[in-house]
Each structure stands twice: as C-alpha cells, then as structure tokens.
C-alpha cells in the first residue's frame, strides 16, 4: 500500500498517462491531480498530444500497402531492391535470456551521385522535346545500338524491354558523362510520354535507389556494379516512374550490370 501523502513524482505522472503505474497508486495520482492544476494541465496536454499523433498518423496504417512492401514480392526477390551499401549486415543476434536478440547497426556509406543525375536530367530535358532527331540510332536497330554503345562506353549496354509498361524503345545516343562516355536510351509510350535511361561510370559501388525531381521531370537513380543509372520521366506519376525503374533495374541485373 502506498502512502497518498507521498508526493507524486514526474515519472509517476508519465507512468500514469502511459498505464505503467501500479494499479494501487493510480487513485493517489488522481487525487494529486485534483489539487495540483499545473500537473493536471500537463497530463491533459500529454493526452492531447497522443490524440494528435493518432489523428495524424493512424491513417498511414489504414492505407493500402504499396506493392513493393508485399511480403511475397520481397521473399521472391533474388536480391535486395532499393537497398544500398547500408545493406551491410545489420542485425546481430544474441542468444540467451528471454528476449534472445538484439539488433545493431553497422555503419555504411551510401553514395549517391548528384552530378550524374543532374547530367541525366539535363539530357532528358534536352532530348525528350526533340521531334525529328531524338536519338542517333533508332530502336529498330536495337542490336546495333547495344553493340555500338557497349563498345564506346566500355561496359555491356543493354536496352531493357519495357513493353509490359507500354514503353517502346525509340533509340539511343552517346553522350559525354561526368567521367567518360554515357549511354542514353529513350523510350516512348503510345500516348507520347518519354522516359530515358542514362548510364555512366561512377566511383561508388551499389547504392540505394533515390528519387529526385527537377522542373517537371522526375528521376530514379541507383548504381550497380560501378555504373550509375538514372531513369528520368514525367514527374506527374511517381508510381509509374518507380514501376519503370524497377523493370529497368531487374533487367540490368540480369544483364550483369
């Protein structure tokens, strides 16, 4: 039995609000609050804070779960999607005790590459508006295009098949990149929306996928095997951009980077 005359501490006030207070002490706290308006005001404020948090964030839990978070997709994935160098081993487990686990973070650097993305977006803006000469080699000469770009760039340039997202290869061109040549591929949908894939050698290893936006263009960028890839497209539909990026990503992986 606790003594109601023992002053209620700040810790007890918190514990009271969070239902962590021993049951027998609750009435003491309630009696205390009735005669201590300052503490009572704080307790009310904390409760209002919790209400505000729920009002603001509970609906996130009610949202439809994005496809990329579906368990089946994550399980069937051959490797991590959108995970970068952060993906170094992160979780360590310790046996023993009831809990039997702990997790700790390993420090690892992700490396993005703003200059490549800026170059890619610039090229995207420059060429998507081009009607007569958007590319140097047309998509009808896909094999030749890939061979030529691979030879000039020094890695295997593969023009992914994006037909499942309604995009058809318009063609490609060779561009100067920040550190050597860059390959530039353009795709177009039946409705005329254009996406481009810009790839250039970068120093960083594999990184997390990032999103950037500039003017009305959006870009998803990531690195894979020393090559930086930037998928640019209209910025009005980010899901669409991600969907295309994923398709490109999956195919560049198959091609061995």
């Amino acid at each position: 039995m606790t003594d109601p005359k023992i002053p209620v501490t700040e810790d007890e006030l918190h514990a009271y609000v969070d239902n962590e207070l021993p049951a027998e002490r609750r009435s003491d706290v309630e009696a205390w609050l009735a005669t201590h308006p300052y503490d009572d005001e704080r307790v009310q404020a904390w409760r209002a804070m919790a209400d505000a948090l729920h009002a603001r964030y509970d609906r996130v839990a009610d949202e439809a779960i994005p496809r990329r978070l579906e368990i089946d997709r994550l399980v069937s994935q051959p490797r991590r999607w959108m995970m970068g160098a952060i993906a170094a081993t992160l979780v360590a487990f310790a046996a023993g005790g009831g809990a039997g686990w702990f997790a700790r973070g390993a420090d690892a650097a992700t490396s993005a590459f703003p200059s490549v993305t800026a170059d890619a977006l610039e090229a995207h803006r420059l060429y998507v508006v081009e009607v007569r000469h958007p590319v140097e080699v047309p998509g009808s000469e896909r094999a030749h295009l890939q061979q030529w770009l691979s030879k000039r760039c020094g890695w295997a340039v593969h023009a992914p098949e994006l037909g499942t997202t309604g995009l058809k290869l318009v063609g490609g061109r060779l561009l100067p990149g920040p550190a050597g040549p860059a390959s530039f591929l353009m795709y177009e949908s039946a409705s005329g929306e254009r996406f481009t894939i810009y790839a250039s050698r970068v120093k960083s290893e594999n990184t997390q996928m990032r999103y950037a936006t500039q003017a009305n263009d959006g870009a998803m960028f990531w690195t894979e095997g020393g090559i930086g890839f930037v998928l640019s497209g209209p910025d009005n539909n980010k899901d669409r951009l991600q969907q295309v990026a994923r398709l490109v990503y999956d195919q560049t992986e198959k091609a061995g980077g």
Binding site: R68, L69, I71, L74, V75, Q77, R80, W81, M82, M83, I86, A87, L90, V91, F93, A95, G98, A99, G100, W101
Partner: peptide, 17 residues
C-alpha cells in the same frame, strides 16, 4: 522495406522473443 527484407532473411536467426 529494408526492415522487412532484413527480417525475412533473418527468419532462422530469430530465436523467439
């Protein structure tokens, strides 16, 4: 997503709790 991937990969390491 990273959390889920990590958890799924570590299923065998999860010792209860």
């Amino acid at each position: 997503q990273d959390t889920l991937v990590r958890a799924l990969r570590s299923e065998r390491l999860f010792l209860g709790g």
